[in-house]
Amino acid sequence: MANIATQRIQREFSEVTKSDESQKNLISIELVNNSLSDLRGYISGPPDTPYEGGIFHLDIKIPETYPFNPPKVRFLTKIWHPNISSVTGAICLDILKDQWAAAMTIRTVLLSLQALLSGAEPDDPQDAVVAKQYKDSYEMFKLTAKHWTSVYAMTGFDKWRYPDFDYKIQRLMEIMKVDEDRARVALSSNNWDLEKATQSLLS
């Protein structure tokens, strides 16, 4: 890694660790295999959103050309959000593409992603299926996003339970002989209509 990138990341790593947001457990960061080019980021789901209570893990790759080019970031934790792929974790956020500036930092990125969880941009989606649900059936979107947060981003006794969702997932797994994740995606994508979800897996 270029010397300028190494120096920047060392400084930014310290900045995140000492930040108020880190002290409040809102964001954090760690090295993967002691490499300054391979980081793991964590953001907590913002209050009063379907992501509240969840901890979301991020894969952050620092390019040789940093800070003149943005880091490559994706969600490792599965999430139901219009601007984040429910399949790959890819993110649609302008500062990770053409609106990046060399003055920005990893802390900027983590806080911007946290802000994205508070305010989705469904007209510029990464996941068209989620964006359509967000625009056409917002209450269903909120329930689905909260369910995904509970399943993928929470541990222990903090989890919420949705008996109706759980029942439909089990039924779809039995009917179509698919795993739980695939059943959940099919149902989530079809507003939890068991018949439509079954048809989507047949087509």
Rank of each mutant, 00 (worst) to 15 (best):
A2V: 10
N3P: 15
T6K: 15
R8K: 11
V16D: 03
S19Y: 03
E21N: 11
S28M: 04
N34W: 06
N34P: 03
S37A: 14
R40D: 04
I43C: 09
S44K: 15
G45D: 11
G45R: 01
P46Q: 11
P47V: 13
P47S: 12
T49V: 08
P50L: 07
P50N: 05
P50E: 07
Y51T: 03
I55S: 13
K61G: 09
K61F: 09
I62T: 02
P63E: 07
P67H: 02
P67D: 00
N69Q: 15
K78R: 14
I79K: 01
H81D: 08
S85Q: 01
V87P: 07
I91A: 02
I95K: 03
I95D: 04
I95H: 01
L96T: 03
L96N: 00
D98L: 05
Q99M: 01
W100D: 01
L117D: 09
G119T: 07
G119S: 11
D124L: 07
Q133W: 05
S137F: 14
Y138M: 10
K142N: 09
A145E: 06
V151N: 11
V151Y: 15
D158A: 13
K159Q: 11
P163H: 10
D164H: 12
Y167W: 09
Y167F: 13
K168I: 01
L172S: 08
E174W: 14
E174L: 14
M176T: 10
M176I: 01
R182E: 12
R184S: 15
V185E: 09
V185R: 07
V185Y: 13
S189L: 10
W192Y: 09
L194K: 05
E195I: 12
T198K: 07
T198P: 02
Q199P: 02
S200L: 03
S203T: 10
S203L: 12
